[in-house]
Design a protein around this nucleic acid. Structure first.
Length: 419
RNA sequence: GUGAGUGUAGCUCAGUCGGAUAGAGCACUGGGUUGUGGCCCCAGUGGUCGAGGGUUCGAGUCCCUUCACUCACCCCA
């Protein structure tokens, strides 16, 4: 039986890798321009980190983690997200002693055991950015501005930024209880799922697609009526700064985040071209996370972009496969040695050159050059070789010229640079 | 975890009411006078019909089981 990749784990093949490289390059340019530094963190962590960081009652921790016991008996987990690890690294290496403010980003695979569907895989890549050590709402706006700028840089246009405030550990529980009390009285109107949500996380009922549930919550209490003065002030300043920068947003009071650590500012960017999994990116503030994982009280804010979702939205002209610069076609057996020698010489000059390893007819070599989208073909003919010359053919306009082999590198370098 | 749909060549798909050696297009390989790509023409390679079992004289086709993929629920990036 042929061995296949495991469910929800995908290969990224050469013809799509250009898009990935393009996105990664843009991340580095944009994020570093905003003062962020890259950090690389392990793929495995102690299970405890995620249980405490993400929250015991969340779906991720309850049923989606790849957890196993290693040979030493420790419970380890493939990271389902990056924020907890980044916070751990910041605490562990006491990065705050150099500067309390840390702006960090990270790109890599995450793992969640979910049923795969469009835009949702068991191994998926995230681009993560976090700011640790700043409680000021100005940084919330700055992070969101960087995110939107980045999305525009990669070529996404039709996007909607949604923001909300989730309140803090003082006011959110109060609101949650109020909402639960309100809905309990009408629980008979709620669907089966929402009956369950009523106990687990009543805020989620806002997301329900069942008509009767939507009708029931129309006049339910809103977060905005319950958030405390400090949270309200914080949120207003975030909105002010976004407006100041000319950024449009949609207030979505129904937006809830699935990880326990989020507080206050929450945001999402959705695209209606994505199907059911329509969030390209999501994030928010998490002022309780550090304490949950046993550190000092440090505020944080950040976001995660889903790479696969982002890439599926990329315009067609981004990250195209790099064409072959030159194909070396040979005629006769003697030419093969020369092809090998010339190709190596060009490789050292970073010119993408290819030749045929088998002895094929010239016609077949030309066909291959065409298929590989070669811009030029160098034809090593027996007669020209005797004079130390070869034919250089431009595949696009079919013109060809005889050139001295010694000048090949310079001639090619000039031509390739020109277009 | 739940539901629906789909599994036939590398890809996209035909295949009638169950009938004999399983098809097409694209792709791939070679060729279409001795040294030149794309178009066209010719030929060739390639399939345990997802897997296992059953019904039948006979199964790609019908039944059961199972696996995989896709989409949706759920959840999230």
């Amino acid at each position: 039986m042929e061995i296949k990749a495991i469910r929800g784990f995908n290969d990224i093949l050469p013809d799509e890798i250009g898009k990935w490289q393009f996105v990664e390059e843009t991340v580095r340019e944009v994020f570093e321009g905003f003062g962020f530094d890259e950090i690389r963190i392990p793929i495995l962590e102690k299970t405890e980190l995620f249980i405490r960081g993400i929250g015991e009652a969340t779906d991720i921790v309850e049923k989606e983690m790849y957890t196993f016991t290693d040979k030493g008996g420790s419970s380890l987990t493939l990271r389902p997200e990056a924020t907890a690890s980044m916070a751990r690294a910041y605490l562990e290496h006491k990065l705050f002693t150099f500067d309390p403010v840390a702006k960090l980003y990270c790109i890599g695979p995450m793992f969640r055991y979910e049923r795969p569907q469009k835009g949702r895989y068991r191994q998926f890549y995230q681009i993560d950015a976090e700011v640790f050590g700043v409680a000021n709402p100005v940084v919330d706006a700055e992070v969101i501005l960087m995110l939107i700028h980045f999305l525009r840089q990669v070529g996404l246009e039709k996007l909607e930024l949604q923001i909300n405030s989730l309140g803090c550990r003082e006011c959110r529980p109060r609101y949650r209880e109020e909402l639960r009390a309100f809905l309990s009285k009408k629980s008979f109107q709620l669907c089966e799922d929402c009956q369950r949500r009523l106990q687990a996380n009543p805020l989620r009922i806002f997301d329900c697609k069942v008509q009767s549930c939507q009708e029931t919550i129309v006049d339910a209490p809103k977060v905005s009526d319950f958030i405390c003065k400090e949270c309200d002030h914080h949120f207003n300043r975030v909105k002010e700064h976004l407006s100041m920068a000319g950024l449009e947003y949609v207030l979505n009071p129904k937006m809830v985040r699935g990880l326990d650590y989020y507080t206050r500012t929450a945001f999402e960017v959705v695209s209606y071209d994505l199907g059911a999994q329509n969030a390209v990116t999501g994030g928010g503030r998490y002022d309780n996370l550090f304490q949950e994982i046993g550190g000092r009280d440090i505020p944080g804010i950040g976001f995660a972009i889903g790479m696969e979702r982002l890439i599926s939205l990329l315009p067609k002209n981004k990250g195209l496969k790099r064409p072959l610069d030159l194909f070396i076609a040979v005629q006769g057996k003697d030419g093969k040695q020369d092809a090998f020698r010339i190709a190596h010489q060009l490789h050292l000059e970073r010119i993408r050159a290819e030749f045929d390893y088998e002895e094929k007819s010239l016609k077949s070599q030309m066909r291959r050059a065409d298929k590989l989208n070669a811009r030029y073909v160098l034809i090593l003919g027996e007669e020209e070789l005797k004079k130390g010359r070869a034919i250089l053919r431009n595949m696009a306009n079919q013109s060809q010229e005889e050139i001295p082999l010694q000048e090949l590198v310079q001639i090619l370098g000039r031509k390739i640079l020109r277009d």
